[in-house]
Design a protein around this nucleic acid. Structure first.
Lengths: 248, 248
DNA sequence: CCGAAACCGTACCGGCGGTACAGTATACCG
DNA sequence: CGGTATACTGTACCGCCGGTACGGTTTCGG
């Protein structure tokens, strides 16, 4: 029963990469099985049809994402007792994780499915909706916690601020794909972090602006990245579940 | 030559809606021609193949988006001489336009293409990249203009702030599709507006927060919407070009 | 040694993309 | 009035891929 799971996992990984790069309809089963080194019969032994493949693929993706959030948020809380500081740390860690991928971020399966929604059944679409809601609620709870100690500087609805993180990440993944520049994701998460900082910081920190900095974008986070990666990996789950791979 | 253009436009509109709802590969030509009331020969008379359809569709989309931005930014400048206020007005108008669609926002073609990139040729992908870059540069220029009169309260790179608008819009479109809630787009653009306000406002406006507002989201913009729509439409192009339909 | 799990091989159908090409209706233009 | 370009229609066909069916084979644990 172990060898079957391994093949299954290999199929899912190949299929997900293909779906994120070409779309669901354009992902041919024949291509998947060629890359996985199995036959068509082998494929249909594991998945009764393409729709079941999509369903299991999505579940796997959501699971992986949840674990990444668990890790990042947990590490934030370990490194600071202040809820604001903890969240800011978590966001930095998230930014690192998101851009710590060799060939750029492959894409968000939820977004991918949303742009091909008429190809999927209700079950799949409901799972995407419930996943997004769960993540939003999670961020919302964090913001509520922060507000108990740090009054916000703008009467904005926290639901919208919570939603914004998902939006920024999904949007930046698209931009990173469109411009072939993986660093956009990290930069956007950090921009959202600035928003959180501005929203909750009590001391107005008016620093020296950079009015005409048109020039090249510079990587300012190399040291921080090395640090954060160490911190994050240190406490991540031992191994076993291949579920923790990336987020979004 | 006029009747041909009309048919062509009808095909493009149907195809775009289908692509945004099902993806490119799953958009069958037979379905398009059935809905357009023509034959397969008629389709291939206008477009030599599916790839050419994609290319022209994308050009049309980018053109429509540019016009929406032109309108919104122009109206902002007409309504205030202060660059910050003008941009805040433009953002509010943009929020209105984005959510002023009967069946929710159909989706962003750029994002849709990015999630099916391996289906398209270099020409199409280059056009998406150049479009995104142009929009980012446009927002960046606006921010530079604002900073001349309003020093920012955080040393964040303006390129990232400019990128953020595109990211928030694209991300919120996905969320609106995933949750079947068109209002998310408007709310997210307004959240970005709050960020801009916080970033550039000189007088720290610490208002009464709403610490535990867990309850239902309320529509606070009905009056403003009616106003903004009027303002926007008033100065929009007379007609002719069916290009101005929606943004993103 | 038996039986379940995990495949392989082959054959086949149907749907869709795309090509080819001949024919037709309409409008404008000289 | 005739001709020519535009804007299609109609039919026929190929090839590829998704999906089904079903029988055979290997591997491995008990």
């Amino acid at each position: 029963m172990r060898k079957g799971d391994e093949t299954r996992e290999r199929i899912l990984e190949i299929a997900e990469m293909s779906v994120l790069a070409k779309g669901f309809a354009a992902t041919w089963i024949e291509e998947i099985i060629a890359e996985a080194g199995i036959t068509k019969s082998g494929f249909f032994y594991h998945f009764k049809d393409k729709n079941e493949l999509a369903h299991i693929m999505l579940k796997r993706y959501v699971c992986a994402n949840d674990r990444v959030f668990d890790d990042v948020i947990e590490r934030g809380h370990q490194l600071s007792d202040d809820p604001l500081q903890a969240f800011l740390i978590s966001l930095k860690l998230l930014a690192e994780v998101m851009s710590d991928l060799p060939n750029g971020h492959p894409g968000c399966l939820i977004a991918c499915i949303c742009y091909q929604e008429r190809q999927f059944d209700r079950e799949v679409l409901n799972l995407t909706a419930r996943s997004v809601e769960a993540w939003n609620a999670r961020f919302r709870a964090i913001l509520d916690n922060i507000a108990l100690e740090h009054p916000p500087r703008d009467p904005i609805d926290f639901d919208d601020v919570a939603d914004m993180l998902s939006c920024v990440v999904d949007g930046s993944i698209i931009m990173s794909k469109a411009l072939n520049d993986p660093s956009r994701i990290e930069r956007q998460v950090m921009a959202f972090r600035s928003f959180i900082k501005l929203l909750f910081s009590s001391t107005p920190q008016i620093r020296v602006p950079m009015p005409n900095s048109t020039g090249a974008r510079e990587r300012s986070t190399d040291r921080a990245r090395a640090y954060a990666s160490t911190v994050l990996i240190k406490n991540s789950r031992p191994s076993g579940s291949t579920c923790v791979r990336r987020s979004w």
